[in-house]
Design a protein around this nucleic acid. Structure first.
Length: 480
RNA sequence: GGUCGGUUGGCCGAGUGGCUAGGCAGAGGUCUGCAAAACCUCGUACAGCGGUUCGAAUCCGCUACCGACCUCCA
């Protein structure tokens, strides 16, 4: 397999050539959502980014095991307890509700499901086993029924902070006073197992107490179980880099003495009004609010595919700001690209091509091999689109072979890699038939130079959301 | 306060030590009965101040502003 893919590894702070552990196979773990409330659009960006990455790995010929967890009630006892009393719901009912909702949204965004989607609550035993093992290694200690990871002791033999670039001295000096610190030897220590207070609904028996696993342990347990002690790619949102992923590195090394992940990838934040989208601050918009237009931020409703296209126009490691203006610009670009793709099958061919088609195709791969540079890919796709429009207009030519090649690659990159899809209008056979009749009548009127009738038909259709275009090969129409 | 990142033309958003990003919007033109679409042409953008260099928006330093993380968070 050709190996040209460069990706930016947070661990090294630079782009590296991607070399999987097992030739032709990739193990990838992505931190999934917490399912105690609706996923907001910012969460979705991360999952869409890694869906694109997953898709390009597949397109590159890799066999990928893609694990993305569901963080269910395991870590959320306290908040779930309060909320479930309020809603009169069982914790697992809340989890179920939001898991289903999450899947629905992911499907609308045309995300592939991961190949394994494990839940934290389904891996309590594995988490207890890792906790035991880290205790045995002397890198954790029990305190009042809870077990904490001993960061300072770990740091004597390893480097706590290697992923996020933090120094343990800075972390200690910058620590704030928080509740419940008295059980810990150091404020940096984090829980592997937490003793449940009496009002916690969900709890599991363990050698130390009736309680629940610590905040960072589930990902270590599930990634190790399904991908091995060291695996290729770990992804997640930038905000998880510290402390969550740092703790995963520490836990993994403490547990089996190996660097758990070769390539750490971090997707950047989606902002709204220049601030990070966040549940706690209320600076969010829900996907459904965006799709239906039922919100105060956007001027109209936007299709999930337009939103996805908008996100693909920015690099996954860049902060992207969400606004009505930016989105409506993206919508027009999306429609333009899609209309060229629709024309591909009816393109006129010549004996030779006026452009170097292979070079155009190569540019798609070069863009994506450079740390999944989707904005460059899209720029190159638009260059291809302009070329094809020239062919359509008769000012450029393309050979039959080249058209087949280009068509195949453009469709592959737009549909398979970027994960975009044609927005199918709610058209029906009846509508098609009716439009055929209407356009035939209009054609007669135009033949008779009865412009009044012809324009009346077109204007009324435009009002009804159907755009009529008179081209060289006849009249076409499209509905919004 | 500590650590890290950003500041690109009207808007969004890539990239690079010297050579067109791309999309949207705008101006003019071609085509068209008109329109739409498409095509052609048009903007001399890179926060500010210094420095390195034959040459910097791209490298270095300082300043200003913005953001992320440091606490659950994609």
């Amino acid at each position: 397999m050709e190996n040209k893919l460069q990706l930016y590894n947070t661990l090294s702070g630079q782009k590296e050539l991607f070399k999987p552990i097992a030739d032709g196979h990739v193990g990838m773990y992505v931190c999934g959502p917490t399912v105690y409330s609706d996923v907001h659009l910012g969460n979705c960006r991360t999952f869409i980014s890694f869906d694109m990455i997953y898709r390009y790995l597949l397109h590159s010929g890799y066999k990928v095991r893609y694990v993305r967890n569901i963080t269910d009630a395991g870590h959320l006892e306290a908040s779930l307890a309060g909320k479930s009393k309020l809603d009169q719901l069982e914790p697992m009912e809340i989890v179920q509700k939001y898991t289903v909702g999450f899947h629905d949204i992911m499907k609308m965004f045309n995300n592939h499901p991961p190949t394994i989607e494990p839940t934290a609550t389904g891996h309590i035993i594995e988490q207890i086993e890792i906790t035991k093992n880290i205790l045995d290694k002397g890198l954790a200690y029990e305190s009042n029924g809870s077990v904490y990871f001993d960061v300072e002791k770990y740091n004597q033999q390893e480097n706590y902070g290697e992923l996020s670039g933090r120094k343990i001295e800075d972390l200690i000096s910058g620590t704030r006073d928080l509740d419940g610190q008295d059980e810990k030897r150091s404020p940096l220590d984090f829980a592997l197992w937490k003793k449940a207070s009496p009002d916690h609904i969900m709890r599991w028996p363990s050698p130390w107490s009736s309680g629940f696993p610590g905040w960072h342990l589930e990902c270590t347990a599930m990634s190790t179980k399904y991908l091995g002690e060291t695996f290729d790619i770990h992804g997640g949102g930038m905000d998880l880099k510290f402390p969550h992923h740092e703790c995963e590195v520490a836990q993994g090394k403490a547990n089996n003495g190996k660097q758990p992940v070769n390539y750490w990838l971090h997707a950047n934040m989606l902002t709204l009004n220049g601030q990070k989208m966040s549940k706690s601050t209320g600076n969010t918009i829900l996907p459904m609010e965006l799709f239906t237009g039922d919100n105060t931020i956007m001027d109209k409703a936007y299709h999930p595919m337009v939103v996805r296209f908008f996100m693909m126009q920015a690099h996954y490691r860049s902060i992207l700001d969400f606004s009505s203006q930016a989105l409506s610009a993206a919508e027009k670009g999306f429609i333009k690209l899609m209309s060229v793709l629709k024309d591909l099958d009816s393109m006129k061919t010549s004996s030779n091509s006026s452009e170097d088609v292979q070079a155009i195709i190569n540019s798609f791969y070069t863009a994506m091999d450079d740390d999944f540079n989707t904005p460059i890919l899209l720029a190159n796709l638009f260059e291809a689109a302009t070329y094809l429009n020239k062919v359509k207009a008769g000012s450029s030519t393309i050979s039959k072979d080249d058209l087949e090649k280009l068509s195949k690659e453009m469709k592959a990159f737009v549909f398979d890699v970027l994960g975009l899809d044609m927005v199918e209008e709610a058209g029906s056979n009846q509508l098609d038939a009716a439009m055929d009749i209407i356009l035939e009548l209009r054609m007669k009127a135009r033949a008779d130079k009865d412009w009044g009738t012809s324009d009346l038909i077109r204007d009324k259709l435009t009002e009804a959301g159907i755009v009529v275009k008179d081209g060289a090969e006849g009249t076409s129409w499209s509905a919004n």
